[in-house]
Each structure stands twice: as structure tokens, then as C-alpha cells.
């Protein structure tokens, strides 16, 4: 029985599991099918929704991408964070400033905003990722709050009034501004899809596996000879870029950014969307994010602004009913419970 025969025999029996890195996900063909269906539904939304709910959907997508960046750190790398709003804000404010002073091209804003988020993440992460657990969580809280307070006091970006007067984006430089709600929404959707795909690719890469190694046993990973500090820093920087991209999408959708969008509330909701959706699965947290926006902003409109109350109830129920988050509903557990802080 030669090694080659055994190996090829194995891959024939279990298609897909040994080809790409096994993140524990079953039946990849089915998952791809579901993903395509969901994407088609999202693309079709402008034909079904009025402008206001459509704008909520756009905001949900931008928030969802922020939540994906939080999940990269929390669920994949096992380092829960409250600081991604800082990089989200960096991307958003940068995109806004670019929009006002430089170019209203969404593509340009996306590029520069993502870089801004990544750069800030690299700077702060160099120090932050030396810590772990609750200390890391608190440091990211401090980072988020410092960013929040920073933009709140900077008059050049509007201080507490926020940055207004951002012109509507066009896709390419010098192109038509996307004033039609449906087109704008499609741009936001495009940014979300790009960002989400980047996260999925990262998850299936060697770095993604190393990140999960950090989550499951950083000491062991070091004993294998890996430099875990650089794994963490690279991952943190990429997550910062994703958050920055989310910020540009947010600004494109709302044409406004204020310090409140980087506040503790936002940070806490982002982290809890991850928990609600199922940390580590990437798609679960997106559903969690959608649920949060849906309950708080959409349903809240129907029950006289008591959306936050309903959201609180949803959170409490979810803790008992969905112990592994939305992603854990499907029988087989994708991974063991997210690591304790």
C-alpha cells in the first residue's frame, strides 16, 4: 500500500475536506449554493424595498462588515475586541474627508479608507497584541474610546457635530454620483461582498490556520516554532483594514459620520453581534449584525422607538436558546465554544 494510493484514495472519499484547509465546515457545495442564493436576494432588495428600509439595509451591510472584522479577531483568533470601531471611524472619516476635498469616487475612498484603517491598526496593534484576554479587551476598549474622544474634540472634522456635507459617491473618479437609492445600495453591497470575501479567503489561508492556532493554543504554536506576535499583528492589521472598508461603506450610505458612530455602544453591539451570530463562522456574525439593525431600527420604528428594549430581550433570550449563536443551530458544531476572555 503505497503512500500515494492511500492519499488519493482518501481525497476521493472525502471530497473537499482535504483540499482546502478544513475549517470544520461540511458540504462545501451546499454552502456555496446557499451563499449564491443569499447574494441574489441581497442584490434584488432594491426592487422590493422602499428607500428608507433600503438605506437601513445598506447600513446593516456596512455594520455587518465591521462585525466581520470583529469576528476575525474574536472568533477566529480568539481575542475578543472592543476597538474595531476606531479603525471603522478612521476609514469613515477618511472617506468623508476625501469625499469633501479630493474625490467623490467610491473606489478611491474605499482604497484610502481601508489603508487608513489598516495603518491605524498596525500602529496601535503593535502594542496591543502583546497582551491577551481581559487585558487585551480593555486595551481595545481604551483604543476605541480614545478614537471616539479624539474625533469628538477635533473641530477640523466637525467635533461633536460630526462630518457633514459629504457629497454622494460615484463609483469611478469623475463618474455619475449614485443618487438613486438602489444604485447606492448596490455599491455598498459590492463593498460588503469584497470585504467579506477577503475575510473568507483569509480564514482559509495558512494565516487563518495560524490564527486559529493562536486561539486554541498560543503556547503550543510558539513551541512549534511560529512567531505568534507577527501572526497576531498581521491579522490585526488586516482586520483593521476590513473595519476601515466598512467605514467607507457606512459613509457612502449615510453621507454623514459623527463621533457617536464610534462610541462604546457601537463597539459593544458589534462584539455582541458576533456572539449572537456565533463567533468564528464569519457568516453567523453577519446575521447577528443584521438582526441587531433589524430589531433595533426597523422593528423599533413599529413599536414607537422601543427597539433597544426589544433588542435587549432578544439578547437575553439568545443567551439561553442559542448557546452557540445562530451559526450553531445547524447540528454539527463548527468549532468548540469561543474562547473565554
Amino acid at each position: 500500500m503505497s503512500a500515494t494510493n492511500t492519499l488519493s484514495g482518501l481525497t476521493a472519499d472525502q471530497p473537499g475536506t482535504t483540499k482546502l484547509f478544513n475549517t470544520g465546515a461540511p458540504r462545501p457545495a451546499f454552502r456555496l449554493f446557499v451563499a449564491v442564493v443569499i447574494l441574489l436576494i441581497l442584490v434584488a432588495l432594491p426592487f422590493f424595498l422602499a428607500p428608507y428600509p433600503l438605506s437601513l439595509a445598506g447600513r446593516a451591510l456596512a455594520f455587518g462588515l465591521l462585525v466581520v472584522s470583529v469576528d476575525l479577531l474574536t472568533g477566529v483568533m480568539g481575542m475578543p475586541s472592543l476597538g474595531q470601531v476606531a479603525y471603522f471611524g478612521a476609514g469613515a472619516y477618511t472617506a468623508g474627508l476625501v469625499g469633501i476635498h479630493l474625490s467623490s469616487s467610491g473606489l478611491v475612498q474605499l482604497l484610502i479608507g481601508t489603508l487608513a484603517g489598516a495603518a491605524l491598526a498596525l500602529l496601535t496593534g503593535a502594542v496591543a497584541v502583546r497582551t491577551a484576554g481581559i487585558v487585551f479587551l480593555m486595551i481595545t476598549l481604551a483604543i476605541g474610546e480614545l478614537a471616539h474622544i479624539g474625533v469628538d474634540s477635533l473641530s477640523v472634522v466637525g467635533a461633536s457635530n460630526g462630518l457633514a456635507g459629504i457629497p454622494p459617491v460615484s463609483v469611478l473618479p469623475g463618474g455619475e454620483p449614485l443618487t438613486v437609492p438602489g444604485y447606492l445600495y448596490w455599491w455598498v453591497l459590492a463593498v460588503f461582498v469584497i470585504g467579506f470575501c477577503a475575510a473568507v479567503i483569509l480564514n482559509r489561508s495558512p494565516l487563518g490556520r495560524s490564527m486559529r492556532g493562536v486561539r486554541d493554543g498560543e503556547l503550543r504554536l510558539r513551541a512549534l516554532g511560529q512567531n505568534t506576535y507577527s501572526v497576531k499583528l498581521i491579522a490585526y492589521t488586516i482586520a483593521g483594514g476590513v473595519a476601515g472598508a466598512a467605514g467607507t461603506a457606512w459613509v457612502a450610505q449615510t453621507q454623514f459620520i459623527s463621533p457617536g458612530d464610534l462610541g462604546f455602544d457601537m463597539a459593544a453591539f458589534a462584539l455582541l453581534s458576533v456572539v449572537l451570530g456565533g463567533a468564528g463562522s464569519l457568516w453567523g456574525p453577519v446575521i447577528g449584525a443584521g438582526l441587531v439593525i433589524f430589531v433595533r431600527d426597523w422593528l423599533g420604528g413599529y413599536i414607537e422607538g422601543r427597539g433597544t428594549l426589544l433588542l435587549g430581550v432578544v439578547f437575553v433570550i439568545a443567551v439561553y436558546v442559542l448557546p452557540r449563536g445562530v451559526a450553531g443551530i445547524k447540528g454539527r458544531s463548527l468549532r468548540r465554544k469561543s474562547s473565554d476572555s
Binding site: V316, V319, S338
Partner: peptide, 12 residues
């Protein structure tokens, strides 16, 4: 789980 405790207490 700590994160779920956070979810719970924040919900409350």
C-alpha cells in the same frame, strides 16, 4: 462563557 455573560448582562 465570558462573552455570553457579556451578552446577557448587556441585554439586561
Amino acid at each position: 462563557n465570558h462573552l455570553r455573560q457579556a451578552l446577557l448582562t448587556l441585554g439586561m
